[in-house]
Design a protein around this nucleic acid. Structure first.
Length: 1060
RNA sequence: GGGCGCGUAGCUUAGUUUGGCUGGAGCACCCGGCUGAUAACCGGGAGGUCACAGGUUCAAAUCCUGUCGUGCCCA
């Protein structure tokens, strides 16, 4: 059927582009899915949707590679592996991009521009780089359905997300609360940590030590703050229950050196942490009492700004409470708590029941009723006024300037306020046990991502703030009745339409501002209110967390598709998704279905630049994948990324490594393939022709060896895939191709194929190469899908991606040769001996081309069937075995430190010293007789290892194996016969090099003249030269060398030669 | 500030789970060899404070503690 054609030089870019075309024309991807349909065994994959509003970089290739690799592998194992693409299209990054573009630096500006127009811009912006992403995806060979992807901005997707939120709402898991966020009153926006981290600035601000007067005692508690504007909001003080506090009495008035406002009267008593007395107090004072913080808990103090906050039902307000976050690293060891203006403050306030009221409005100004001098003023401008007020009431102990890094708005440069924003939460704390158990059911790679990184996080799980005061996102489907306060969560478009008031418009899509205009009729009995939607959008992590069902628009359609693919078998993203997508998938699946969302998760390490720095646009160190796509090709990038480190290790990207993968792996494989194809084409070799078949058992030991080795490699490869060690799999395969296949099998088989006439041996070699190449291609295909397909198609006529996994699976059959352990062991010895021989020659200064008369193998198994190979490698005339070792060997006893150490422990050094001094032959006899002892310890065969070493005077090497030692000994003498043979090889080599230099065809004949000045060349050796070099006409030592002749010298003999 | 990784030759890395013989490879470098065998191959050389400091042990790259650097996530 398929006779190979000569493939020629490798051009990886042309090869890959041509295959991309073939895949498209043949619909190979869809065939690779459909052809497995009848086995009815799905393996489900869920694509973590990328955002296409940034250009894809090399780090995006990594996660797409590992997604693709596993999916291709599972396909070849016989599973149906559907791969739906996806796009993440909502979220703050999109808005920021558009705001920058349109110079809309505040919410006010956006609203002036128009929310509808703004969101339209956002929608367009998310497709900016879609084309670039598609091109990258196709070029790298990532097979995923990009024609019918799920998109988080589509109504279908949003409707599914709404449905899931309603499930939570009905389970009572959705509630309203506050979230303290860095907030900019100028732009009216709150910021994510990510944004905040871009805007830290060093500033110097007034910090104050404030006296809080206890109600029942004549003493004040000192507390410190860097934000005086939060003091009117103070509702409590926190102390560390274990921390030691002191009550001190001021003994002297402030000195003349006192800086700033404030102070304390003589006799006044202050309370603060003992450790901080020195750094806080500026008066001489006596310690009158010392006690743990627990004793302070429960004491009441007078509010600084009476009336600014109403006590309401709170018992804890304006009392001292215990908190675990209190430290004595700065301040006074007493933490001023303003519930609405600090994360810790808010959490503590909720815990102990402080009133949660704002003293500051969304505009950044104090609200009415705080204090007549402050009401309506921007808080940051009131620092001085507040300090004055405190001083005038004797409540200020000290003020000072404090320099620290403080977050600022990157748009307006104004300092941000930590501010409790209204927010919707999912009560994750209520499902903590469930989510922990679902997490534990996931097979994580690496394991610590799940148990440690995710596990630790989940065991301290907090409620999930899912609302954002933004414009572009999935609108929160919660409506509230202004009349009766009823909250209603809508779970479908249909539900919204049926509850809609008559005057409300029908929204053209499920986005703001359209859904904002929808009013619902209040469903409460007797209420005729018009419900208004909460003006938030959802955290975009919630969107992507719904992917497992929203990609199918479940439960509105595709019930079967969803239930057949949930939980999904496999997801894969970079490690930063632990608290991102991995978490949101788990969180949504747990709260909606009480099930895990995925069975296996591969968490990848990041790709860093070559200096170990993270790749970012601002650093300008992002590597463009096309630099390598259009040079070494996608196969090489993929192979490099797979083999250079474990998938989860952070890795420095080294462009040179890609080149190395290309030069080593792909060039070598290509040339093995090319070598095979060239001769196969020449010989019209047909692997399907039964009459030409040579059964493996009838093939040469060399063939049987490589067939056994390929099976060993394939089984290891598969095992490594199963245990997620893709890097080890790839390295093993590369080692096989380069070392076993190319550098040994092909090198040793070359002459077999040069044979022009048909022979069993030649066909045996061709079948062997054919079979081994196919196995290699099938194993490689998931990692690097191009070249293996090219070779597979050329050898069989069909795509490797439609072929079965060679090691088999529950669905496809195993298709590997049998192992032959004996032959593997023998060959391993042969190769070791060949290497040892080369080392001998280097050490004995004897060039490789000069043959040795005799080589002796001493010890080891019978390797006579490889005698020819080994004699040629060693370049010896005669290779024989020798049983009498004593002629060139002696015994050395080596200690087994593991055994001896356990036995002798601290005496080990002295025992080792004695062993060193002992006569090995005598000691060995004593050991065999059971009477050996060193340093008072009995010595047995277990304690030592016997090794043989050659005596002086022989050119020899000894190799140690578990089964015993094997030596190779070479005869180093030289005679005229050997010199002639050596010279002939040198001449041949020079002529061949010249032929190549002259660009002659391999089979073309030459006319050769040689002149030798020095040793005599024997006739048989001259014949060898003329045959090897295809010298049809030739002359030796006839006339004088012409001026155009090449001249070289070896061992004092000068040789001239000329080719015509 | 907290959690979780990572740190081995100029570069990329194996070995760390389970302590044990001289810390093993590849790239680059040097010497030599081999080649109708490719950007290849083979032998040898040079190159290591196994991030640092302590500890446990007869024995530590490996286990423990701390420090530094670096990355991710969270504050």
């Amino acid at each position: 059927m398929s006779v190979p054609v000569s493939p020629g030089e490798l051009d990886p870019v042309a090869l890959e582009s041509s295959l991309m075309g073939i895949w498209q024309d043949e619909k190979t991807f869809s065939k690779s899915i459909e052809s497995r349909r009848e086995l009815k065994s799905p393996f489900t994959f869920l694509e973590g949707p990328p955002t296409a509003n940034g250009r894809p970089g090399i780090h995006h290739v990594l996660s797409r590679l590992f997604k693709d690799m596993v999916c291709r592998w599972k396909s070849m194992e016989g599973h149906v592996v559907e791969r739906k693409g996806g796009w993440d299209t909502h979220g703050l990054p999109v808005e920021i991009e558009v705001q920058k573009q349109l110079d809309l630096m505040s919410n006010e500006a956006i609203e002036k521009f128009g929310m509808e127009a703004f969101n339209q811009k956002c929608k367009e912006s998310v497709w900016t780089y879609e084309e670039a992403w598609r091109e990258m995806t196709e070029r790298m060979g990532f097979w995923v359905d990009m024609e019918d992807p799920y998109v988080t901005l589509q109504d279908d997707y949003i409707e599914s997300a709404w449905w899931s939120l309603k499930q939570m709402f009905e389970k009572g898991l959705l509630f309203r609360g506050h979230k303290v966020l860095p907030y900019c009153p100028q732009t009216g926006t709150s910021y994510s940590t990510h944004e905040v981290s871009q805007g830290y600035k060093e500033v110097s601000e007034p910090a104050v030590f404030v006296k809080f007067k206890l109600v029942d005692e004549e003493a004040s508690v000192l507390a410190w703050t860097t934000t005086p504007w939060t003091l009117p909001g103070n509702v409590g003080l926190a102390v560390g229950p274990e921390v030691t506090y002191c009550r001190v009495r001021v003994t002297e008035p402030p000195s003349g050196k006192w800086e700033g406002r404030g102070g304390a009267e003589v006799g006044e008593e202050l309370i603060l942490a003992k450790d901080l007395i020195g750094s806080v107090l500026r008066n001489h004072a006596d310690i009158v009492d010392e006690f743990p913080g627990a004793e302070l808990v429960g004491k009441a103090y007078a509010p600084l700004f009476p009336g600014a906050i109403e006590r309401g039902e709170s018992k804890a307000a304006w009392t001292i409470v215990a908190a675990d976050f209190v430290t004595t690293t700065d301040g006074t060891g007493v933490v001023h708590t303003a519930v609405m203006y600090g994360e810790d403050d808010y959490r503590l306030g909720m815990e102990v029941g402080f009133p949660a009221q704002h003293t500051v409005g969304m505009d950044g100004a104090f609200v009415a009723g705080v204090h007549e001098l402050l009401d309506g003023r921007y808080v940051k401008e009131c620092d001085d006024e507040i300090i004055n007020l405190l001083e005038s009431q004797g409540l200020l102990y000290r003020e000072h300037d404090y320099t620290h890094d403080y977050p600022h708005c990157w748009r307006t440069d104004h300092p941000l306020l930590y501010y409790a924003m209204d927010s919707w939460f999912v009560r994750m704390t209520a499902v903590r046990e469930q989510i922990l158990s679902h997490n534990a059911s996931v097979e994580w790679a690496p394991e610590w991502t799940g148990t440690k990184r995710m596990g630790e996080w989940l065991s301290n799980i907090k409620d999930w703030a899912i609302s954002r005061e933004r414009y572009w996102g999935t609108p929160i489907p919660v409506w509230i009745c202004p009349d009766c306060g009823t909250e209603h969560c809508v779970g479908s478009i249909e539900e919204m339409s049926s509850m809609k008031t008559e005057s409300s418009p029908t929204p053209p899509e499920l986005h703001r501002p359209y859904v904002d205009d929808v009013r619902l009729s209040c469903p409460s009995d007797g209420c005729s209110g018009e419900m208004v939607r909460e003006p938030y959008v959802m955290d975009c992590w919630f969107d992507s967390g719904c992917a497992s069902f929203a990609q199918w628009h479940y439960p509105f359609e595709n019930e079967d598709l969803f239930s057949g693919s949930f939980p999904v078998d496999y997801i894969c993203e970079a490690v930063d998704q632990t608290r991102g997508w991995f978490y949101s998938l788990l969180a949504v699946a747990t709260t909606v279905f009480d099930e895990p969302c995925f069975r296996r998760c591969l968490s990848l390490g990041h790709i860093l630049d070559k200096d170990g720095k993270k790749m970012s646009k601002s650093r300008g160190n992002v590597v463009n994948p096309w630099d390598h796509f259009s040079k070494e090709g996608a196969d090489s990038i993929r192979w490099y990324m797979t083999t250079q480190s474990a998938p989860w290790s952070p890795t420095n990207f080294d462009p040179n490594g890609v080149r190395e993968s290309y030069a080593k792996m792909f060039l070598t494989l290509w040339n093995v393939y090319r070598f095979h194809s060239d001769y196969a084409a020449l010989d019209d070799f047909d692997p399907e022709d039964e009459s030409g078949m040579v059964n493996p058992s009838d093939r040469s030991p060399l063939d049987r060896w490589i067939l056994s080795k390929v099976t060993e490699m394939a089984d290891d490869f598969h095992q490594n895939f199963v245990s997620w060690d893709f890097h080890k799999a790839g390295r093993g395969l590369e080692d096989f191709v380069v070392n076993d296949l190319s550098n040994w099998y092909v090198r040793r088989s070359r002459r077999r194929l040069w044979e022009e006439s048909d022979s069993n041996d030649k066909r045996a070699c061709q079948h062997t190469l054919h079979e081994v190449l196919l196995i290699v291609c099938r194993l490689m295909a998931p990692i690097s899908p191009f070249m293996p397909d090219e070779i597979h198609r050329s050898l069989t006529g069909s795509s490797v991606h439609l072929a079965d996994w060679p090691t088999g699976s529950g669905l496809v059959n195993r298709d590997l040769p049998d192992r032959d352990f004996g032959i593997e062991q023998e060959m391993s010895l042969v190769r070791s001996l060949a290497e040892a021989g080369r080392r001998i020659r280097v050490e004995s200064n004897r060039r490789q081309r000069l043959p040795c008369q005799t080589g002796w193998i001493v010890g080891g198994p019978d390797i006579s069937r490889f005698n020819d190979i080994l004699a040629e490698e060693l370049n010896v005339e005669v290779l024989t075995t020798e049983s009498d070792l004593d002629a060139f060997q002696k015994i050395v006893l080596e200690p087994n430190r593991k055994v001896l150490g356990a036995k002798c422990r601290s005496d080990l050094p002295s025992v080792l010293a004695q062993l060193d001094l002992a006569n090995p032959e005598e000691l060995l006899l004593e050991i065999e007789a059971g009477i050996a002892a060193l340093g008072g310890y009995e010595i047995t065969m277990d304690d030592i290892e016997i090794r043989r070493a050659e005596k002086e005077g022989f050119a020899a090497k000894t190799l140690s194996f578990e089964e015993g030692d094997v030596s190779i000994v070479l005869d180093m003498h030289t005679d005229s016969n050997l010199l002639s043979k050596g010279l002939a090889r040198d001449i041949t080599r020079r002529i061949q090099a010249k032929r190549k230099e002259m660009d002659l065809q391999v089979e073309s004949s030459i006319s050769l003249s040689v002149w030798i000045d020095g040793i005599e060349l024997e006739n048989s050796d001259w014949e060898h030269v003329t045959t090897e070099t295809r010298a049809g006409k030739h002359s030796l030592n006839e006339g004088k060398p012409s001026s155009g002749a090449d001249i070289f010298e070896v061992d004092g003999t000068t040789v001239s030669f000329e080719i015509q």
